[in-house]
Amino acid sequence: MAASRPNQLFRNKSAKIAAIPMIATALVVFLGGTIWTVAHSFTSSKLLPKWDLVGLTQYERLWGTRRWLISIENLMIYGVCMLVFCFVIGFVLAALMDQKIRFENTFRAIILYPYALSFIVTGLVWQWILNPEFGLQHVIRSLGGNRPPAECEGVGLSLSCWLSGIEFDPLYNPRIAIYGILIAALWQGTGLIMVLMLAGLRGIDQEIWRASRVDGIPAWKTYLFVVIPMMRPVFVTTLVLIGAAIVKVYDLIVAQTGGGPGNATEMPAKYVYDYMFGGQNLGQGFAASTMMLLAVLIVVIPWAFMEFGRKNRG
């Protein structure tokens, strides 16, 4: 007589027991916390959460706040630029690094090094570099002899006057301050992207390169039509990493500009934090963070459908 089939629930017992803490964390902290936050965004909570439903009032107030609108606009500019430049610079650096150069390890370490620094340090360092009084602008002006404007009045074309008059103070100019943040973020982030892309390039069979040489295809065309399409999985990984870094950008802003000058470099994550813990307005913070979640979902859900929904095709 055949032994009865064991209960499916008790198969691989130890594995299931080991997974329970993580499953519990995911359910309680991530899912539970999210639901709790979304629910309380419809309340009038101030210093402490309070179950006092006020409908969409918090959202109306949120979208009526100038600071929030600026934050969203900043995130858009920062996000698009960060995504494009990180990808392009990271890939180009990786492609250059893949040309069998000398001291590759040294270069790789140098370029990856900023990633080892925290955003706080990066922010401070770039705050100093971009400071007009003793940073980059000061260095360039010194090269020109630091001639006062009066001296250069009517001099016409003069290198020293041009250098002395150069202006480079992104962190003090509200119109371009967000690009000052971008420079620091790129400096810190491209190294990791380069390393990932380099690993992807190294994963390409060398014989593909040889075949394309025998076919007489120029290197740039091989990159564009053969190698880049083959690197899709690496691109997806880097996209996720860059995307997450963009949405959660907070500490860099705090360290580099504190959101200033004025509101010029405010970001949604900072808005959330300031309202929840600084402004003692939990309801407003929850509403803002719910909007951030919504924005992420709008991007992630269609992508997930495209990526995983097609699995059952032949």
Partner: peptide, 21 residues
């Protein structure tokens, strides 16, 4: 001369086909 100008065709161990085409 460049490989493509030598009048040769080559077949590789790993086939080296362009996978996305």
């Amino acid at each position: 001369e460049e490989p493509s100008k030598r009048g040769i065709g080559m077949v590789f161990q790993s086939y080296a086909l362009y996978p996305q085409m």
